[in-house]
Design a protein around this nucleic acid. Structure first.
Lengths: 228, 228
DNA sequence: TGCAGCTGCGTCGTATACAATACTCACAGC
DNA sequence: GCTGTGAGTATTGTATACGACGCAGCTGCA
């Protein structure tokens, strides 16, 4: 995580990534090199680099002589992504329960307790940040950089859809209860329990997001983005 | 899988990828834009695009104002990749056992029988090709495109190391026996058995490759590539 | 002798110009 | 009225030039 901010292409890539994740740039839309270049006040060259970076992160796809398209993700696909995420987290959790160092376990519990407090306070922003750290620690705890990287990449890809999550205290409380089971399983070195707890945790999160999306979709009655 | 061969950057990216996978370009070495451009008789621009593609596939890393380095993959890292592969295949296998359509199951068994014949004939090339199809079918059978894509990508990344596999009939026979258990479990819709069989199958394959590598490494006594 | 700063060189990052390709739309022929 | 073909336009891919940065080696001073 070196600071490489001075490089235009990275700045543009991060900015665009955030906008895609935030939904400001809708899925399926085309990323026009010229207009992006004009918007950032730079030439097309660094923009092209940025677009390549996005493609590398599977947030967009490049079609030769046609352009770069923000990946189109159907509701069914989101469902699949959550399932994949659940499986990855379950696997990482099982391995973590067996392999985490004492300091990692301590950090996990510390984070969990901090999140309990944040949930109690109703601090959604703080909670979500801590939550990201919680799950990343879980990935790292597997002590398998490939699994961790895959899980993290999936989490990023799912980020755009998490924003549909409810902003009520109930969600945080439920999340905390589920996290408790996860933490317990890991501290007890019970791989199977960790796996089960994580799978349930992700399934419930997915359900929430998917249901939320259905509500929003039917409300705005979005006519399935104009093809091309 | 559209043909995009006419684009220089893709041609260069594929060529470089093959050379990295084949070990012609050693891990840790720097990919100089100018020399690569000269070698292919093109300008630096498409070379840069190619290098971005390689970075996107995690085959290289870019350091601003310093260059692109071919990722260093240690023996420990290979071990981790095999473990990740095992977990992915186990997961896909479990899902496949529950979700495969009748035609998919039929195709799986057909492939397996064909591979038995190839193993009997000692046709390593044919066997490895069929084997790739076998495992890809397993991924597809999970009916989760994300899991399938992740598993497939991992398989590609591991490809460089499979070439160390022994070329004896014993390996094919052992593989067939293990495949038999996988096929049985899936046809019986026994998720747990499929998971277990696949994990064992991958672990044994990994062991073989890793042992093989140790032999080769000690023979050539490679002095852990010069750092930067 | 040792080191701090400078300088020159190599490489990367960016800007701009040009070539190649795909899409649009109008028009001719049926 | 419909379809196929063609030129025109817009956008991407590539080449080249130039500025920015990192590094190595040298010089000058303490």
């Amino acid at each position: 995580m070196l600071e490489t901010r001075k490089v235009h292409s990275h700045v543009v890539a991060e900015e665009l990534e955030e906008e895609i994740i935030a939904g400001i740039i809708p899925a399926g839309s085309r990323l026009d090199e010229t207009s992006i270049a004009e918007r950032f006040g730079i030439s097309r060259t660094p923009v092209r680099e940025a677009l390549h970076i996005l493609c590398g992160r599977s947030l967009a796809e490049r079609v030769p002589y046609k352009g770069v398209l923000v990946v189109q993700i159907s509701a069914e696909r989101i469902d699949q992504m959550f399932e994949a995420m659940a499986e990855m987290e379950a696997t990482c959790g099982r391995l973590s329960s067996q392999r985490m160092t004492m300091s990692e376990r301590a950090e996990l519990e510390r984070l969990h307790q901090q999140m309990n407090a944040l949930a109690e306070a109703g601090d959604h922003g703080g909670y979500d940040t801590a939550n990201a750290a919680f799950h990343e620690l879980l990935f790292q705890g597997s002590h398998n950089s490939d699994l961790a990287a895959i899980a993290q990449a999936l989490r990023v890809k799912l980020a755009p859809f998490r924003k549909y999550q409810l902003k009520d205290t109930g969600r945080l409380k439920r999340s905390c209860i589920e996290h408790q089971q996860i933490v317990d399983a890991i501290l007890d070195q019970d791989g199977r329990a960790a796996e089960t707890a994580l799978r349930r945790h992700l399934v419930s999160a997915a359900q929430e997001v998917l249901i939320r999306r259905q509500i929003q979709d039917s409300a705005t009655s979005k006519p399935t983005f104009s093809p091309a």
